[in-house]
Design a protein around this nucleic acid. Structure first.
Lengths: 146, 146
DNA sequence: TTGATTGCAAATGCTTTGCAGCCGC
DNA sequence: GCGGCTGCAAAGCATTTGCAATCAA
């Protein structure tokens, strides 16, 4: 979604199109996702956007279904991205920290299974995989610890 | 695993079998999982076990592969359970808060897919589904909001 | 005995909130 | 102009950590 679209959606829901809201959205769109609230605030400090506004804006964007939070580690901070229209899941490498998206019918499969067999209406499916990516596995093989 | 098994596993790894460790494990086993650190500490206050020991113990049990943490909400505290030998995922009802486990070959399917197509070695798969359970959907139908 | 482990309390880090002024509508 | 939003600073939680005392081995 572009800036005008966001402004329209905000106003359509009775919210105002303010600088922090537009800037946070632009930053998420530009970065392609996986930013913490603090990273967003740091990057937007020049525009006069503060951390608390970032948090408030993220909560709002989430409520509108525009953004989405994911916890990529145990104690870590939440990381944010724009909501994708199609389902996906996150694959995180514990070694290099790289995060990739994977798409697939998997999420739809889970949803259908739960609905049919258990009468459960799934609103949100969050699939997180942690492990080691191909690049890091190669590196390990080349430079063994022993 | 029973108490003796845990004591043995602790000592085999160079750790001591102390009261907090045995009690936290027993509490998790008895409760069947989904307890926060604070709930554990409250229930074990009579045994003189403090919150910080609960946290340290949980971290240790996780390292040993005996326990496992899951975040069931955004800002919520982590909930803990004993690790199951077989994979499973959590289904949380947003309305009544009930949490159920579901088993299935789904996790193995994801792991295999990532390994074969992307060379990614998955260590941990965390699948969380949120929505409304059958019971709550029935209730809603009987007592419509309008 | 001896060092790992605990309790206590203070510190940390992420996130939320109260309030007075500001700005989009 | 009005009321929603923001910045600022302080509070709130879950979790971690420093240190002296304690306890398992």
């Amino acid at each position: 979604m572009d800036a005008d679209g966001l402004a329209a959606q905000l106003r359509a829901n009775g919210y105002r199109a303010t600088i922090p809201r537009m800037q946070v959205h632009a930053a998420l769109r530009h970065a392609g996702g996986h930013l913490t609230a603090e990273q967003l605030a740091d990057g937007l400090a020049d525009e006069g956007v503060t951390l608390s506004s970032v948090y408030r804006t993220l909560a709002l964007l989430e409520e509108l279904g525009v953004a989405r939070a994911t916890r990529l580690g145990e104690g870590d901070a939440s990381r944010w991205e724009l909501a994708h229209p199609d389902e996906h899941f996150h694959v995180v490498c514990d070694e290099c920290g790289r995060v990739t998206h994977h798409r697939g019918g998997l999420v739809a499969l889970v949803t259908a299974h739960l609905a049919e067999d258990h009468g459960f209406a799934a609103d949100e499916v969050d699939l997180l995989v942690r492990g080691r990516c191909a690049a890091c596995r190669d590196t390990d093989a080349a430079v063994p610890l022993s």
